[in-house]
């Protein structure tokens, strides 16, 4: 039972890592009070999804998707890699918009902590 569980974990390590990283990202978004750290959590969650796509595209003993490959050589799938490639660039744009909002929030309320922000907004 334990051995088969370990074997599943060993052969699917990238997916297991992705689940744990998603958990950590989610934890940062829920539990950290600082807005900048929340945004880092969003980024972490994003990278976990990227890891999933890349792990799907991976092929054991293959090579990078430069075609035409030598005969009989396996090549990693280009399609998930393209999706991740564009998603990373869109991700940084999204992070930048979030950071701009953080800068605005600080200019308006003078704090970046979520609990203090709630109090300030409740007082208004």
């Amino acid at each position: 039972m334990i051995e088969s569980g370990l074997e599943i974990l060993a052969s699917r390590y990238a997916y297991a890592l992705m689940f744990v990283l998603m958990g950590i990202g989610l934890y940062m978004v829920i539990a950290n009070e600082n807005l900048v750290k929340k945004l880092i959590g969003v980024n972490l969650f994003q990278t976990a999804i990227f890891l999933f796509f890349i792990a799907v595209a991976y092929v054991e003993g293959g090579s990078a998707p430069i075609v035409p490959a030598e005969s009989g050589e396996a090549v990693a799938s280009p399609l998930p890699q393209v999706i991740v490639l564009t998603a990373i660039v869109v991700g940084i744009a999204l992070t930048a918009v979030g950071l701009a909002l953080v800068v605005r929030i600080y200019a308006e309320y003078g704090t970046l902590r979520e609990d203090t922000l709630r109090e300030v907004r409740a007082d208004e």
């Binding site: 660039v89 940084i92 930048a96």
Partner: peptide
């Protein structure tokens, strides 16, 4: 687009918000 936007994001964030 990408090179321009990277520079834009950097300068905009560096300038910050001045009310």
């Amino acid at each position: 687009i990408v090179s321009g936007i990277i520079v834009t994001l950097f300068f905009a964030t560096a300038a910050g918000f001045t009310p």
